[in-house]
């Protein structure tokens, strides 16, 4: 699929817009979250959606998969889910008298890991390792995952019962976290109206294909990040490490993710270079799930989003001459 010509920035931006519009048909009033999902898709990242049940986490993931005509699989994480249920298992074929690999739920373009924090840590890590390496190793054999490959994991807020919270080391593997939030009243009414007419999900038809997405990723990689922007990214990440409200700041991987996401943001705006706004806009989404609040900040009922947003505001942008 790399043989085909690399699409232009304008084409990428057009397709991304179409994908966004397509998702918006089933998810009323959440343009910000949809945008983030599209950015993560083109940035070859994985998305963590965190919120209470029933606000459309799964709907977003499924709509995204349908829009890009990709293979979507859904793994419902439960406490008794085994790692092999995720990665796949080798079974002995009586006919051929050979072990045969039965791929698990992870072999798809878009993998929806539902309620990921309800599974045991062992199973969680099986998924996360696959996410990091884009391949699965079973019984000494390595099986590459299809491209593009994107995990959209949903998790309930960690305070809820029956959850195994994702350790920070594993949250760090997700490029961005979004919170759905309850829809606005009008959006909820509109949602009811449209659902009454039938399942909207079924009406979503693909606006592109996985092949195009894979080629678009190449285009995005060519977006230029000036040294001054890299400097800004590092300054931002360093600022989270030095913030008095955080006991754990963001990792170097966070810097890398922020740069990749900013590149997509620039491409979607039709630019072949990144400006500080691209970085600043995504910083909260990309950084806030990786940091740990101090006890004082928790007692003061500040959220990590608020703290990271404050850090972004305080760090001077390289615009200032």
């Amino acid at each position: 699929m790399d043989n085909a010509a690399t699409p232009s920035l304008a084409e990428v931006a057009n397709v991304a817009t179409s994908v966004g519009q397509s998702i918006a048909r089933v998810l009323e009033g959440k343009p910000r979250q949809i945008h983030t999902a599209v950015v993560v898709l083109f940035a070859e990242g994985h998305l963590l959606i965190e919120d209470v049940p029933g606000v459309g986490k799964t709907a977003l993931a499924k709509a995204l998969a349908r829009s890009i005509d990709g293979e979507a699989k859904r793994i419902q994480f439960t406490p008794d889910l085994l790692p092999s249920d995720v990665t796949g298992v080798s079974v002995f074929n009586q006919t051929t008298r050979e072990f045969e690999f039965k791929p698990g739920g992870i072999f798809a373009n878009i993998v929806v890991g539902d309620e990921i924090n309800r599974a045991s840590p062992k199973t969680q890590s099986a998924l996360l390792e696959a996410m990091a390496e884009d391949q699965v190793s079973v019984d000494g054999h390595t099986y590459p995952l299809p491209q593009p490959f994107m995990v959209i994991a949903t998790q309930n807020p960690i305070e809820m019962e029956g959850t195994y919270p994702l350790p920070e080391a594993q949250r760090d593997r997700f490029m961005a976290r979004i919170q759905m939030g309850y829809p606005a009243r009008s959006s909820e009414v509109a949602m009811l109206t449209s659902q009454a007419a039938g399942d909207q999900m079924a009406s979503i038809s693909p606006v592109t294909d996985v092949d195009f997405i894979a080629r678009a990723v190449t285009t995005v990689r060519q977006v230029y990040v000036a040294p001054i922007i890299n400097d800004y990214i590092v300054t931002l990440v360093e600022a989270t490490r030095n913030s008095p409200d955080l006991r754990l700041g963001a990792s170097p991987r966070a810097s890398l993710h922020l740069m990749r996401a900013a590149r997509v943001e620039a491409a979607l705006a039709g630019r072949d270079y990144v400006i500080p706004e691209d970085v600043a806009q995504l910083a909260t989404t990309v950084l806030s799930h990786r940091v740990l609040l101090t006890v004082d900040a928790q007692v003061a009922r500040r959220t990590s989003e608020q703290v990271v947003a404050a850090v972004v505001t305080q760090v001077p942008r390289p615009n200032r001459g």
Binding site: I228, I275, P276, E277, R317, N319, R320, G321
Partner: peptide, 29 residues
Amino acid sequence: AAAADAAWREVGALFTDTGLEFSDASPVL
């Protein structure tokens, strides 16, 4: 790069001189 920075500073200074608000955003925005 230095010329661009200086020119943009000058633009900002012109806004300040005339008593207009300037913006911290990227130049095009």
